[in-house]
């Protein structure tokens, strides 16, 4: 996956998560039932979006790492984020 795509997907997940844990995204899910693992639904809903950050960020890191290894000469850290130089896509 290209660096831009990985970053865009991660950004989209974070925006969606913010939408679904606040008004108005949370409104349809602000309810008690069904219970999941004994917990009220809205609590699991919010916790789920938070837990989802781990695999999403992990996947992003895998892609970022691949691109960093292919670009060893560049200065570390600087120039890598968030606007990648043109022609990075594979």
């Amino acid at each position: 996956m290209s660096l831009q795509a990985a970053r865009a997907l991660t950004g989209a997940y974070l925006v969606l998560a913010t939408f679904f844990v606040t008004w108005p995204g949370l409104v349809p899910f602000a309810r008690i039932e069904p219970f999941i693992l004994g917990l009220p639904f809205s609590m699991v809903w919010i916790a789920g979006w938070i837990a989802g950050c781990v695999p999403v960020l992990y996947a992003l890191d895998r892609v970022e790492r691949l691109h960093r290894e292919g670009d060893e000469e560049g200065p570390p850290g600087l120039g890598q984020a968030p606007a990648p130089p043109d022609g990075e896509a594979d």
Binding site: L14, V21, T22, M43, I46, W49, I50, G77, P82
Partner: peptide
């Protein structure tokens, strides 16, 4: 639940911002 909701989302952008600030 608001306390549960914000932490991870507030931290995530630091994946990019942190290393840039560090550099």
């Amino acid at each position: 639940f608001y306390i549960l909701a914000y932490g991870a989302l507030g931290m995530a952008p630091f994946y990019w911002v942190g290393p840039r600030a560090a550099a």
